[in-house]
Design a protein around this nucleic acid. Structure first.
Lengths: 154, 154
DNA sequence: AATGAAAGTGATACTGG
DNA sequence: CCAGTATCACTTTCATT
């Protein structure tokens, strides 16, 4: 993984539909050499897949919320499985601090959030307590990772 | 936006590199009709773009952290601009509760986190106080949105 | 590993139904 | 919206360095 691979990854995060010709210009290589590098990055699972990036509002996911969860002891595996099955739960992280987990949810509206938390979070025997934060506005939301170790921000 | 469009969007979130032929089978339409629908979804910006989905660990973003930020009054615009410029800041949301903002960060390691927060978050005049949570493990992390209003989770 | 060219595949556009 | 065709672009492969 060298500078060229990193440039390719930057480009493919911004535009995954760019052709190899365009990508080759970014990389400073021929088309075939570029194709090989992309293939290698896929095989090594540095590139996990290719996704359409959707506008949440356009698909009815208007509301973004974060939920802190406190779990009863020994219930983590059950909880993980439950979270993985719920499409509205985009993320589920064990975190430092007074709470066991932090969830990121996308739902239609406040009513849907209320129902969802009551039924699928607080309704779980594994869950002892929870606290919900609603996002009021988002200044930034991206899945684009910094590919060069981001010590050097401008 | 009907059931067919939603099926297409589900498929394209899972595999954005699927060809039109495969997609047409999912949609239950001909290739040409499928191609038109995808094009329409792009024009309407329901599909915002196409991205390579990278493994964070493979590109040196080992550490995931969340940072709560309390801002001094009237500094929001400055703060937004600052956050947008920082690649390590993947998300920046105004949230309900005692804090003004919740940030999601990806960095190389704890040392990088410490330096980053000191310099780029707490170092800002706009920032009054902050609190950092480190993700210890992630049971789930996806950008795949539920396309049908997710009232109906199984 | 990279190049350049040749060969194969799939997307795009247009016709008519 | 479907089927079919033609064109064009892109990916893939291979011989060569």
């Amino acid at each position: 993984m060298d500078e060229i691979d990193r440039n390719i990854l930057v480009a493919l995060q911004e535009n995954g539909a760019a052709g190899l010709a365009e990508l080759a210009k970014v990389a400073g290589l021929s088309v075939s050499a570029t194709a090989e590098r992309v293939k290698r990055l896929e095989e090594r699972a540095t590139i996990r897949g290719w996704r359409a990036d959707l506008d949440p509002n356009a698909v009815g996911c208007t509301l973004l919320a974060f939920v802190f969860v406190g779990l009863r002891p020994g219930q983590d595996e059950h909880f993980h499985r439950a979270m993985r099955r719920l499409e509205a739960v985009l993320e589920c992280h064990a975190v430092t601090g007074p709470w066991s987990y932090l969830l990121k949810l996308r739902l239609a509206d406040l009513r849907a959030l209320e129902l969802f938390v009551a039924e699928h979070i607080r309704g779980l025997p594994a869950v002892e307590r929870s606290e919900t934060l609603v996002a009021l506005a988002s200044a930034k939301e991206t899945a684009i990772l910094p590919v060069a170790p981001a010590d050097e921000e401008d």
